[in-house]
Design a protein around this nucleic acid. Structure first.
Lengths: 359, 359
DNA sequence: CTCCCGAATGTTTGCGTTAACAATCGAGCC
DNA sequence: GGCTCGATTGTTAACGCAAACATTCGGGAG
């Protein structure tokens, strides 16, 4: 396992010379071809080791037309969800013997997304996974007329793309129904950013659950952007409203607010903080349910009841989907390629932040 | 911008034919060589656009021996820190016109780290950034006799590697001194995993601050692994101890526990939760300071005073360092390559979780 | 003993690009 | 008017590998 002493790195021909065979035989050994005498194979392997030879990926790609690399486009890799998905993708990619090249987006506008796709195509990735669940991004993506297989992950289940996503509607229904079952007259909803499909779907699921029970449908609390900060800001407003509600004279016809389903755990944290700061108790005064089940949710004060989604699994499935797509390449005269849609079921994790309403 | 109608993608020769020039002229246009007549250049560009031509990266790499790709090895991309650094790295890489290939580690043992390096070298990355701050990983890395430039990021400032890191010791001193200044007799420390350099350095900084003030040095609270869970578990034990401490008869000679400096924000959250559950108030009964300043820290109950580190910047600097290293390649007879060490200063973010002790 | 066939190995070609070298073309100069 | 020089363009040769196409060798069938 010598290091090239500042000369050119050894190439296949060098190995061949040392092993006393032709370079083609070396190639055969490298690619596990049959019809190589074991003794020859051993000599070649020894030579490879002796020289510290490693195949040149570019040369190999040039002739095989395969790069074994995939692209992942991600908006904010800082969020727990995207970060976990990336992790799941990479783990799975390793098993399928693929490399993962990431392209982080500065913003989610059409231009930025298309640029990222372009960048990855320049690098000749064999497939692309997009973790960019915004509607504009998705619509931009649907127009990428490219021969590169493309799968969107965590982008809601209704995108016009091959996609892998958690069933947001089902999750939202789960959360809402749970709160209704506890005895709340209705459930309010702190939304995520309206431009995200996940947020839209969670809102839809929430609404559907209310309708199924004939519960009043309060105006959603809009303005969340998944961050704790916006949860906090909305919480401040809510706290004021709840204070009024204690005073019957000030009844304003709106539904009393005793239960809130938050679009995700981070906003729930912000909301929690705002309520506590206003002297309200969770779950005694207000019940809360989140979405995601980030690792910290269990240690909020109080621990957060939330809808769990398996990001790792999402990532793995997404990878599986691209690999599948890569395998079933066009083939002349193939009909419009079908778009696999994988939907993963979420589950409710019950903790202390939701309880029956007081009377 | 036509799509190849299922035939081979156009190559340089196709462009040349359409433009009525030789392929070399096309190459010159592509690479911004001087001495191409503007009119010719325009014809070539038009042809490129007409055919939807894009250069073949593999062929280019084969001859230039440059891949314009970098590898990032990361352990747990799910944590806020690593995820943010990855983001910063990618942003900066884009500006330097590099691709980023990630290699996630399943574990931090020597073997796994070396495998990752190998994988990346197979893909011919020009440089590697490691976000894997464990001592075993670092020691494995120092032995990678490779011609690939390698920079460790967030791995403490004492590794025997080119590195970019926040000054953990200074940050820990900042936190500890702040608590002492508030009037606490001493400060306890909830450590991170001992095998991480960051954790070690934070412990060192904490100890040094105590010594500088002549404050008693309590046994560190070991067992943290950066997670909220371990913070919680340690917190349970602490709570028991504090309860005893209220009873003078049970005094056990240990320092009273009124202030804790946590190795990171997540463990601080767990600790917070455990204390509250035990009926203790923060900061009235116990003051807390964290490390990292994750976006949620501001919304803990109470908001967490913590040491801020700029992960994005860390990532950018790390990228700058590798690019630098790549630029100043060996050169025959070059002396052992110097190892750049960048250390970034942290800052204290004061919030409500720390206050003067009661008497 | 010869022929045929398959296993094992070698030789040649082409992948798409850039670099090195060659050729052409004009303009300026003596 | 021939020559030189620089600007522009073309031609050829790598780059390192795998696939297609030879070749060799040995053994079994006839």
């Amino acid at each position: 396992m010598r290091i090239a002493d500042h000369e050119r790195a050894p190439v296949m021909a060098d190995v061949a010379r040392v092993a006393g065979v032709s370079h083609q035989t070396v190639s055969r050994v490298l690619n596990d071809h049959p019809n190589v005498k074991p003794a020859t194979r051993d000599r070649v392997i020894a030579a490879i080791r002796e020289l510290g030879y490693r195949p040149n990926a570019a040369a190999r790609t040039l002739v095989t037309r395969r790069t074994r690399s995939l692209g992942v486009i991600s908006f904010n890799t800082t969020l727990y969800g995207p970060a976990s998905m990336l992790y799941g993708i990479e783990q799975a990619a390793k098993q399928h013997d693929y490399f993962v090249t990431v392209a982080a987006l500065a913003s989610l506008d059409r231009r930025s997304v298309l640029d990222a796709v372009d960048r990855l195509r320049d690098q000749a990735v064999e497939g692309i996974i997009v973790i960019a669940p915004e509607t504009t991004a998705v619509s931009a993506l649907t127009q990428v007329r490219s021969d590169v297989p493309l799968v969107a992950v965590g982008c809601g289940t209704h995108a016009a793309l091959a996609s892998v996503a958690v069933d947001n509607e089902a999750g939202a229904e789960l959360a809402t129904t749970y709160l209704l079952d506890l005895g709340h007259r209705t459930v309010h909803h702190l939304t995520g950013p309206r431009s995200w499909l996940d947020a839209q779907e969670r809102e839809t699921g929430w609404r559907r659950a209310l309708q199924a029970r004939g519960a009043p449908e309060p105006e959603p609390l809009a303005g969340g952007d998944w961050s704790a900060r916006t949860g906090y800001e909305l919480g401040r407003r809510l706290a004021g409203r709840i204070a009024q509600q204690a005073d019957p004279a000030a009844a304003d016809g709106r539904e009393p607010l005793t239960a809130v389903f938050c679009a995700n755990d981070h906003t729930a944290l912000g909301l929690l903080r705002a309520l506590q700061q206003a002297g309200l108790r969770v779950p005694e005064d207000v019940s809360l349910v989140g979405f995601d089940d980030i690792p910290e949710a269990e240690y909020f004060g109080p621990p957060l009841t939330t809808v769990r989604q398996d990001f790792d699994e999402l990532g793995r499935r997404a990878l599986g989907a691209v690999v599948e797509l890569i395998g079933t390449r066009p083939g002349p005269g193939a009909p419009a390629r079908q778009m696999p849609r994988v939907s993963i079921g979420p589950s409710l994790v019950v903790r202390a932040s939701a309880a029956p309403p007081r009377h």
